[in-house]
């Protein structure tokens, strides 16, 4: 369960802080698969960090029951100068699991044991993407967070990445933030749209997209009037 209790999230702006969420109270139930439709530049990554418990909101509180992963496919954890195995050992050490557990998932996912001994800087971008995807899903958590990326784009691996993701979703919740309404609809069954600092519940992401389009038209009209 993740509860946003009267939460306001802001990021520093050029002249004044930019509000991403304003006084929002929302409950994401245990094992719920929640989509948040949010356009580019609306604060999706910041909101993912708040929901992941790594950023404090400006006001209000975030209650997280259970464990939360970092955004699926987040690549920043890999140091390019180290081998994949060394990077995995560090992630495993911080998560208090054995590196073998993560390494086995990565080796299976990448279809190679040898990849673990290679320096990250020698990996092709596609290999790196596979590795970070597998690392982010290697340890089971109660809540998965996806910030725009939820699957690897490599069609050869698509079936395997779906298998891994579905396995991890077994008994876990998902909060998926994206601007892609179709993808959100595929993976989630509760839907929200991030609109003017509020998380508005909608029937499906298509309805959310209509609201975003209507808002964009209004803003363009106001701009033209000025």
């Amino acid at each position: 369960m993740i509860l946003l209790d009267n939460v306001t999230v802001q990021v520093p702006g050029w002249r004044a802080p930019i509000t991403i969420l304003h006084n929002q109270t929302v409950l994401f139930r245990k094992r719920a698969r929640v989509s948040i439709l949010a356009p580019a530049g609306s604060g999706r990554t910041t909101l993912a960090r708040v929901l992941g418990g790594v950023k404090r909101p400006m006001r209000g509180r975030v209650f997280i029951e259970g464990s939360v992963g970092w955004p699926i496919g987040f690549s920043g954890l890999l140091n390019p100068m180290l081998t994949l195995a060394e990077n995995i050992a560090h992630v495993a050490g911080l998560l208090h699991v054995t590196s073998g557990e993560i390494g086995a998932v990565v080796a299976w996912f990448c279809d190679s044991d040898k990849i673990l001994e290679r320096r990250v800087m020698t990996l092709a971008p596609s290999e790196r993407a596979l590795a970070v995807f597998a690392i982010s899903l290697a340890v089971p958590v109660d809540h998965l967070i996806a910030d725009d990326k939820i699957m690897v784009s490599d069609t050869r691996i698509a079936a395997r990445s779906e298998q891994l993701l579905r396995r991890r979703l077994d008994g876990a919740g998902l909060i998926f933030l994206s601007r892609n309404a179709k993808l959100l609809e595929r993976w989630c069954d509760e839907h929200y749209v991030l609109l003017n600092g509020s998380l508005r519940a909608v029937a499906d992401p298509t309805e959310g997209q209509c609201l975003l389009d209507a808002q964009a038209k209004t803003e363009i009209a106001e701009f033209n009037d000025v």
């Binding site: 050490g93 208090h96 557990e101 086995a104 008994g171």
Partner: peptide
């Protein structure tokens, strides 16, 4: 595959205790 026994249940807290965290870092 591969999914080890631990993968069937989610860890309650997914962070190492402070000394282990510092040792890893």
């Amino acid at each position: 595959m591969v999914f080890s026994g631990a993968s069937t249940r989610a860890a309650r807290t997914n962070i190492a205790p402070w000394p282990a965290r510092i040792a890893t870092l």
